[in-house]
Design a protein around this nucleic acid. Sequence first.
DNA 1: TGTATATATACGATATGGCGTATATAATCG
DNA 2: CGATTATATACGCCATATCGTATATATACA
Lengths: 115, 115
Amino acid sequence: MFNEQTFFDTLSDETRRRLLVLLMKEGELCVCELFCALATSQPKVSRHLGVMREAGLLGVRREGTWVFYRMHPQLPLWAYRVLEALVQGTASSAAYAEDTGRLEAMANRPARCCT
Amino acid sequence: MFNEQTFFDTLSDETRRRLLVLLMKEGELCVCELFCALATSQPKVSRHLGVMREAGLLGVRREGTWVFYRMHPQLPLWAYRVLEALVQGTASSAAYAEDTGRLEAMANRPARCCT
DNA sequence: TGTATATATACGATATGGCGTATATAATCG
DNA sequence: CGATTATATACGCCATATCGTATATATACA
């Protein structure tokens, strides 16, 4: 079940907020797309995704060797509204533009993943 | 100016969230009302209020020896929406009911303060 | 079965944040 | 000014979270 404290702990980390904004906007992304978009290391992103999955924030789907993450379909409405407000607040930021820029610049995703 | 990281750091603490919800609902409260409502110590509440004031989340008004806190009037819209969603998520919680219960049970506030 | 790719986890080090207690500041009033 | 009430800050302690690096797991494919 969903815990308020855990939810806000999640939001207190910038990396996790960037991941959440991307997933809110793009719908579903694989791990390699996410750490490419954020220009950071794979273990770092995996750890943060794991935290959010255990917190009930994210849903996961495996397809071959790729793992796709998305927002959890049964997220409480109030939590979803918090995230929508976060997306709104982030929309015009330079950091978000850079993240989406790298995501869109990534060739053949996820078929030929970054390394 | 308003910092996103600082804002979410604020929300990661339960005491601060309880204070924010009370201020969102009640509009303006003095320090003694707040630490009575939360049934906790005065220094603890003062420190958290100070953190939120410096973060640009709260406005302050002094009246004699009392200090009244309220939500900052120029809070960014997206941040206000986050807080509205938090209020919604908290509305039916037992903790919130207890906080408001203690606040309303407090006699002659703020004229004759607790202790 | 062996290798390669994608993802997850373990571990030690470091940094940060919250707490309780004590004390300092600020304002009122006699 | 001295005392009282209300609020703010200082300090030391402890718990937790994040990071980088290394390694483990899982799947696909030759």
